[in-house]
Nucleic acid binder design. Structure first.
Lengths: 276, 276
DNA sequence: CCCTCAATGGAATAAATATTCCATTTTTGC
DNA sequence: GCAAAAATGGAATATTTATTCCATTGAGGG
């Protein structure tokens, strides 16, 4: 029917491009394969290099690299480059250098403090990403997806997390109820067996939240617990336990991982609900 | 002896350049100062932008930006750019490798999504750290420190940020009042001239928050505005504007920078209050 | 072994981008 | 308020860089 479609559509993002590179057809001609291999290994150079430079690294003529870009679906090197440039424009290389520099100079305390919190946030995210158990996320998502209603409960610092989760769930069109803790008894009165309670609590665990979890358990409501320690006393009651540990700065914490996690859950849930 | 030396030698590295920018002579002509300020704040864009783009961001003619580069000691923009490009080319591989590794494995969607959000959070924090103007933080802290009462106001996603700020301020023993938006009129009725309004709003800006800011201005209450764009319509009304831009994932955001920022403010404030 | 077609490299061309020049405006010193 | 100097913006030019073209090479099929 149609002419050889090659890779008709250009990748829309760097990660899409990486995907494609991971599945490079072995039938690719020699030079083009060289390009693919080099690109896969030096993906970070595209934003700041010319075709000629990339071609030289791949040990290939510029025109060959050009053809390679077109085989990927781009109109040329430039079009591919804008992808990398725009992603890079949001980021920045020498984080550590910048941080230590900030600290070294007599920067005001507050600025240093921010840098410390930023670094802590970064570490927390990395730690969590590394130790993340995909099955748990999946389990949580399945529970949420099947829930008639999701009840959100958290006191003190956990309250911010539930408010954001509530906002995101609403935005995604997922029914959710935010309990503010004051009318606690009334809250648990509305728990039903086909509901899910998403409870957030950090050490030292607020007794209200522990009570609500216990109550939910008694009513047969499914329970997802987001906490910062597997030692949370009600962990055994929960169907899924998500442990988000935040690196602290002078004993203070930003709930970066928790916020990122609930956002992820909401967005993933939204995608699933739409596909139904 | 010699002719006017200007900045005879070009900076040898990005951090040397940053040093120089931090000590920009006030005698610099207007346009050139604009360039300096923009560069200081968007240092990361140089590697992937053209002079024309940088000039446009600085709201300056390309030739002016050119002169600015030369005033710094470079022969031109290109020479300055190689500095950034080469530092970038050296420093990135780790992070990219790590990410593409994650992707390569057939991880479930939600896990990938978390990794994306984690990366976005990381980028956001870096960006903010880079462009952070210590004076603004100081100004905000001074206002907060002198306030008789701090009023916190934010709708929708901004609400989570204010709830966390509220929690932290309480913890630090700083008087703060969280307005939840429903009793808005009542809220602004309590604004006094020696109070501070800490308003949080992101595009598209909620009319409630804009109204509250306007009302506060009329009452002589000092205003600190936390937003994600300098274009916020009430930015001119504010005494201090803090711009926390979050990198998005498929148009969704986690308020990582905002949360980190309010935590920083609260802790820094707590330290100062204690020292009094 | 030859013919055909894909692949390749280098050179020619096109496009984008940096850089300089200069007429005009703005500021500074008197 | 005037003259001189500095600063500015826009247009002209130079340079770099991407892209295409085409002659040559090499591989695969009959």
């Amino acid at each position: 029917m149609s002419t050889k479609p090659e890779t008709a559509q250009p990748p829309r993002s760097v990660s899409e491009l990486l995907d494609r590179l991971d599945h490079i057809d072995d039938s690719l001609p020699k030079r083009l394969r060289q390009c693919a291999v080099l690109l896969r290994r030096n993906i970070n150079l595209v934003a700041v290099s010319t075709v000629a430079e990339m071609a030289a690294l791949a040990d290939v003529a510029p025109s060959a690299f050009m053809r390679f870009c077109q085989a990927l679906g781009f109109s040329g090197y430039s079009e591919m480059q804008v992808l990398f440039r725009s992603e890079y424009a949001q980021s920045r290389p020498d984080y550590d250098a910048r941080l230590s520099e900030l600290r070294a100079k007599g920067a005001p305390d507050a600025t240093n403090l921010f840098a410390d919190f930023a670094e802590a946030g970064h570490k927390s995210l990395i730690n969590f990403t590394n130790s993340l158990n995909p099955d748990q996320l999946e389990a949580a998502l399945t529970l949420l997806q099947n829930a008639q209603m999701t009840h959100l409960f958290g006191m003190r610092r956990a309250y911010s997390v539930t408010t954001y989760f509530h906002y995101m769930l609403n935005k995604m069109g997922v029914p959710a109820m935010l309990h503010s803790g004051v009318g606690m008894v009334a809250a648990s009165a509305s728990f039903r067996a086909d509901d899910v309670l998403f409870a957030v609590t950090y050490a030292p665990f607020s007794s209200e939240t522990l009570d609500v979890v216990t109550e939910a358990k008694a009513r047969g409501t499914k329970i997802i617990l987001l906490t910062d320690s597997a030692d949370c006393p009600v962990a055994p009651e929960a169907d899924v336990v998500l442990v988000a540990r935040e690196v602290d700065v002078e004993a203070f914490r930003v709930p970066t991982v928790s916020m990122t996690l609930v956002t992820t859950l909401a967005v993933a849930l939204g995608q699933r609900v739409q596909k139904e």
